[in-house]
Design a protein around this nucleic acid. Sequence first.
DNA 1: TCCGACAGTATCCAAACCGTCAGTATGTGT
DNA 2: ACACATACTGACGGTTTGGATACTGTCGGA
Lengths: 117, 117
Amino acid sequence: MTTAAETMRPSVQRAVEVCPVEVSMAVLGGAWKLSAVKYLLERTHRFGELQRRLGTVTPRTLTRVLRDLEADGIVVRTVYAEVPPKVEYSLTDLGRSLDQVVGWLDAWGDAYPRPVG
Amino acid sequence: MTTAAETMRPSVQRAVEVCPVEVSMAVLGGAWKLSAVKYLLERTHRFGELQRRLGTVTPRTLTRVLRDLEADGIVVRTVYAEVPPKVEYSLTDLGRSLDQVVGWLDAWGDAYPRPVG
DNA sequence: TCCGACAGTATCCAAACCGTCAGTATGTGT
DNA sequence: ACACATACTGACGGTTTGGATACTGTCGGA
């Protein structure tokens, strides 16, 4: 049999040993991840669409980000057997369950420096 | 004059250029950070208390985590001129404003692998 | 015939992150 | 005399993360 722990990415596994919040941060932390999720909450995107909306991300990095999110069960990757290639990214139920927090973190980040001065 | 941007840590500054959610992750992302905040939401802690509650964190790492949180306006560090040294860490208003999200992320992380298996 | 769009890969490189180990200073307890 | 507790700091190193740059293959359009 295969337990969930065996297929988890190393950083997530480590987090499980420590604290639930660490698990969340292991899955959602890191550059571009939540921005990508934020756009995917809007609607399904193609690879190039995400790249353009994120602005300065390189294809190499975006690929890694999306592959991690896929491995963690947040996004689904759908490949169409067409030429030129067409690949769509959308959220799983688990990914959609992030709607609230992402909205919250977006608002908090937007207001961030202001409480200081 | 001094703008907020000038005193921000580099990773936070970069995030500001990208997206508000990235700002949140720049401030809150990384090992031990949200776990520390979680305990500090309970009450003020001394350095050693936090270290023991976090379990396997090294003093070196914990220091860096707390210094970052201080620089980002999340925690306050109070040093008492005593021997042996006594240092207390507590949350700022901004830090306390994380109560909801931390609770949410803790719950989400706790439930995490179950939706899959 | 050559160019661009598409969704990436390959390879290399730099910075950030996090950990280990050793050491600091001072006062109390045995 | 010696260890212990406290809250660190410094030097160093490995691993992970993220970025720069160049390249792949196929098709439709100019």
